[in-house]
Design a protein around this nucleic acid. Structure first.
Lengths: 154, 154
DNA sequence: ACCAATGATTGACATTTTCAACGGTCCGTG
DNA sequence: CACGGACCGTTGAAAATGTCAATCATTGGT
């Protein structure tokens, strides 16, 4: 019993440790891996997951302010400034002062921005499908649903 | 609802945007929130999610080497050095040179370490249950299973 | 006995996160 | 209408994290 210490963690005995059931850990690790995969795939479009997300929100006409972007992406407003600066310098996105509130900037994608997004989105989708290749579409959707619960606790 | 663009993303129109179905984004956001919650709960034990994970693996007798730790937690080996330094300074953990390979350090928790871990684990579990309070235990387990697929793609 | 490969460590460097301060604008109250 | 407090975006700096190359001791194969 106590001396049940046969050989060590071989390779992946750790996986069966306490952490194997720890949601926070699993999320962190899953996030690290998928983020890396996504960044790799988006790199050929000159994007990362962050800039892709900003571009996505600008591209589908939601016209978000930078503050909304910050809250949605869980970033500090100053990080959004940098992100938008980058996209704007590449003419993928424009800052328009919100007519309803001249303090706020509303983000709008340019034609080039929508174009690039369309291409990048295909890459993103491919990555996602690759990551969940071993899973049925129903399970895929169930996972998304459960993650939404965690991501948007209302 | 009158003019084409009524009021804007109001609060959460963004949620229904393209990203609402983007797994990478959902993972990132869910991870950010749960990590923050976990760190807050672990703070009273002087731990963060990272140090908690290391302590957990040391505490349940897996006797992992630092390299195994690094790979498992997806960290650079140099980060593991710092993490272990911190725990060792607090006498929660010991480095023992692996008799089977004297280059490697095996991590073992001290009594105090196991003790602290037991208490921290309760806090961690409480957080996890709180996060998934709206979900049945079966769904909770299903989520963990799907995350394991992403976290450990074999 | 040699030598390429590996584990831990260190130090340098880049990237990301987190905060406080500021000017411009909004809006409710007096 | 003017005031003052709150809010938006921006800047800059400090702290925390992540990434990388170099080094030393050790290992395992030839």
């Amino acid at each position: 019993m106590s001396s049940g210490k046969t050989r060590l963690p071989g390779r992946d005995a750790l996986r069966d440790s306490v952490l194997g059931g720890d949601l926070v850990f699993l999320l962190a690790r899953a996030n690290a891996l998928t983020l890396a995969a996504a960044n790799a795939a988006l790199a050929e479009h000159g994007l990362k997951a962050r800039s892709y997300s900003v571009l996505a929100l600008a591209a589908d006409g939601a016209r978000p302010t930078q503050r909304e972007l910050a809250e949605f992406l869980r970033l500090d407003p100053s990080q959004v400034v940098a992100l938008v600066d980058g996209l704007e310098k590449r003419q993928l996105v424009e800052r328009r002062t919100d007519p309803a509130d001249r303090r706020a900037n509303v983000l709008v994608a340019t034609d080039a921005g929508r174009d690039l997004f369309a291409r990048a989105q295909q890459a993103a989708r491919a990555v996602e499908l690759g990551l969940l290749a071993t899973v049925t579409p129903e399970e895929h959707e169930r996972l998304a649903g459960l993650l939404r619960l965690l991501a948007f606790p209302d």
